[in-house]
Nucleic acid binder design. Structure first.
Lengths: 179, 179
DNA sequence: TCCTACATGTAACGAGTTACATGATTTC
DNA sequence: GAAATCATGTAACTCGTTACATGTAGGA
C-alpha cells in the first residue's frame, strides 16, 4: 500500500459524500468551492493522486466520454471507504499558515506611518475579497450539503471577519497615534 | 541579483530590527518565538539563505567564535536595508493555510456523533496548546519589542481564541443534537 | 559523566504550483 | 467564428521539512 498524501483523502472524502461518480475536473471544482479556503489542491496533485488511488483499488474509474470529449468518472470502493475512515480517525490536527501580508506588517517598523497604514489596507481588501467569495459559497449551498461542511463554512466566515476586524482596529489605532 | 525567498526577508527584517548582529542559530530562535505562528522557517532554509544574502552583499558575516565554538554573526548592509524596503512595499498579501484538523472535521459526516465530537476536542486541545505558547510569548516581551510585532501578536491571540471558541460552540451544538 | 544548549550545515525527500500541451463542446 | 468551459495530463520548478553529521561549552 503506497503512501497517500492528504489530497488523496480529500478525493476520497468528496467521493464518499455522494453517489454520482466524479471526474478529476469535477473534484477540482469541488475543492475550489469549498476546501480551498483551508486546504487547496491543484490538477498537478489531483490527477496523479487519482491514478495512485485507482492502482491501489481505493477508487474505481469508468470511462464516460461525452461525444469525443474524454471523461473518466471515479467512485469510491469499499477499501476506499475503509481507508478514509482510518485517516479520519487519526488524531493529527496540524495547522500550517504562511501569511505574507502579516509578515510584511510584522516587519513594517521601518516604513512611515502612512506606508504601514497602506499595507494594512491592502491586506484588509484582500481578505474582504476572500470573505465575499466565502459568502458566495454560503449562498450557493443552503441545500444539498450536509451538516459538517456548514460548520466549516461558519469557521471560515468567522475567521475572515476576525481578520478584517483586526485590520480595521489596527488601522484606526495607527491613525489616532499622531494626534 | 538572485531571487530571494520570503525567508530571506524574514532574516533581513530581524537584522534591521536590531544593532547586534545575529547568527543563523539566533535567527532560528527569533523565528520560533515570533513569526513561526504565521510564517515558519527551518535551519534548512535559514543557513542557505544567509549564504545567498551574503554572496549578494545584503548581509555581512563576521566570524566571532566563542572558544572553539564557531559562530558567524550577520548584520544587514545598506543594500540589504534597501532590498528589505522594496520587499515591504510590494503589495502581496497572500495567505496560505493547510488545516488538517478542519479537513478531517469537514469530511467527518461518516463518523458517529461521538467520534466527531472527539475530533473536535482534539482540535480544540491542540489549538489551546498553541494559544498557551502565544500567551507565553506575550509575557516574554512587554519590553524591548517595538509596536507592530505586538499588533501581530494580538492578531495571533485573537485568531486562536476564535478557533477555540468555534470548537466549543460546535461541540456544544453536536451534543445538543440528539436530545 | 551526561545532558542540554550552542552552532553549522547538507542531502534526500515530499509537497505544491505553474506553465504548458492538447483537444472537444457549448454558448454568445 | 471567437471565447469560455470541459477535460486530461505532465515536466520543471520552487518550497519546505526531516534526518543526519559534526563538534564545543557549560552546568548538574
Amino acid at each position: 500500500m503506497p503512501n497517500f498524501s492528504n489530497v488523496a483523502y480529500v478525493i476520497l472524502g468528496f467521493l464518499e459524500n455522494t453517489d454520482d461518480p466524479k471526474s478529476g475536473y469535477d473534484l477540482k471544482q469541488l475543492v475550489d468551492q469549498s476546501t480551498r479556503f483551508f486546504f487547496a489542491a491543484s490538477y498537478g496533485q489531483i490527477y496523479p493522486e487519482l491514478k495512485k488511488l485507482s492502482d491501489a483499488g481505493l477508487v474505481e474509474g469508468v470511462s464516460q466520454p461525452t461525444g469525443g470529449r474524454a471523461r473518466v468518472e471515479y467512485s469510491i470502493t469499499g477499501d476506499g471507504s475503509d481507508a478514509l475512515r482510518v485517516w479520519l480517525l487519526e488524531n493529527k490536527t496540524r495547522l500550517e499558515m504562511r501569511d505574507e501580508g502579516l509578515l510584511r506588517v510584522f516587519f513594517s517598523d521601518h516604513l512611515s506611518r502612512e506606508e504601514r497604514i497602506a499595507k494594512l489596507r491592502e491586506m484588509r481588501e484582500d481578505r474582504a475579497v476572500s470573505l465575499a467569495e466565502l459568502e458566495a459559497v454560503e449562498c450557493a449551498i443552503g441545500d444539498s450539503i450536509p451538516d459538517m461542511p456548514s460548520h466549516a463554512l461558519e469557521y471560515g466566515l468567522g475567521l475572515h471577519r476576525y481578520v478584517i476586524d483586526w485590520c480595521d482596529r489596527t488601522i484606526a489605532q495607527l491613525e489616532k497615534e499622531t494626534e
